[in-house]
């Protein structure tokens, strides 16, 4: 195909009615990427669409891809169906929202606070060892520490409380690593010294000078923490006992376990919609910031 082979740098300039118009042909990559991109999002679009389908549309086979007469019935069904799970779905939702927001805000604060001296206090004794340990912690599967974590949580008397879901997640090595890399690259030492000469104390420097300069980094941390915490089913499964402390991800597992039947598909999709919507919205709002930050997240070996 001659169209595809044409180098992108030399766009053809056709002449129409005596005026030169520029036609930008899509590059060859699009022919490969667009179908794959569609394939990647198709299941998500399908879940969203199914969540709003009325029962008669769920029963049609083969099922129509898009919903024709959207309804909120499935969400109502979901609320009824989860009555069988002993607590209303809204309770799972509240738990997820509360735990995720608290965790993420604390993660950002704690990781940034620790990253600041590691990045900017040159010559701080022990800094290199600490950073090496954090890189090491990135290198093994998080499940390794789950059993002793369980014992620690138990010893601290936090089993079956919100604390058990929030506190262990605060040791977020990846978050610290990212904040440190970003501070290394994007906060000028001169800026900090200037603030210091103006009489600012360390907290003021951290909060008023460093943090505003690394806004993309903590935005990213916010997103990643949110996605991870929101989708996490391991902690609520292990650290909590009563249904009233479980989160949406756990309710989701109970809903999807068992045979996949059309009758439950509506309620399941509604739950899946409620579970995925927040993460996608959070990501959409912050995507540009994420890519800006990720440039700094390599490991220099």
């Amino acid at each position: 195909m001659a169209v595809l082979a044409r180098p992108r740098s030399v766009p053809r300039v056709p002449v129409l009615f005596g005026r030169r118009i520029r036609i930008q042909w899509p590059s060859a990559q699009y022919f490969l990427l667009v179908p794959l991109a569609v394939f990647a999002v198709l299941p998500i679009v399908y879940v969203i669409s199914t969540a709003f389908k009325p029962l008669e549309e769920l029963l049609i086979f083969p099922p129509p891809f898009f919903v024709r007469r959207p309804t909120m019935d499935n969400f109502q069904d979901l609320l009824l169906a989860t009555n069988a799970l002993a607590v209303p779905f809204s309770r799972y939702l509240f738990n997820s929202v509360f735990v995720t927001l608290t965790t993420v805000l604390l993660q950002v604060l704690i990781c940034s606070m620790c990253a600041y001296p590691l990045s900017k206090a040159r010559g701080l004794p022990g800094a290199n060892i600490v950073f090496a340990m954090i890189i090491a912690a990135l290198m093994f599967a998080p499940q390794v520490t789950r059993i002793p974590q369980y014992l620690v949580v138990q010893k601290l008397g936090m089993i079956d409380t919100y604390w058990a879901l929030i506190v262990p997640a605060l040791a977020y090595s990846y978050g610290l690593f990212m904040m440190k890399q970003f501070m290394d690259n994007s906060v000028d030492m001169a800026l900090i010294e200037a603030a210091r000469i103006d009489g600012a104390n360390e907290w003021t420097i951290f909060w008023r000078v460093v943090m505003p300069n690394v806004a993309p980094a903590w935005n990213t941390l916010l997103i990643f923490g949110f996605i991870q915490q929101w989708n996490d089913s391991f902690s609520p499964l292990v650290f909590t006992r009563s249904e009233a402390m479980k989160t949406v991800s756990v309710a989701m597992i109970s809903l999807t376990n068992g045979p996949a039947t059309v009758a439950r598909l509506g309620a399941q999709s509604a739950a899946a919609f409620l579970m995925t919507a927040p993460t996608i919205i959070v990501f959409l709002l912050r995507q540009a910031k994420v890519i800006q930050t990720m440039a700094h997240s390599g490991i220099k070996a």
């Binding site: 991109a37 990647a40 989708n231 991800s249 597992i253 899946a272 995925t276 993460t279 996608i280 990501f283």
Partner: peptide, 26 residues
């Protein structure tokens, strides 16, 4: 190098945002 970088990046990244549990329905 593409113009539609942001949209395509979102499409390819979306599956890892939504999490395996929710999508196991489909």
């Amino acid at each position: 190098p593409l113009k539609a970088k942001t949209v395509l990046a979102l499409c390819f990244y979306a599956p890892s945002i939504v999490g395996g549990i929710a999508m196991s329905v489909v």
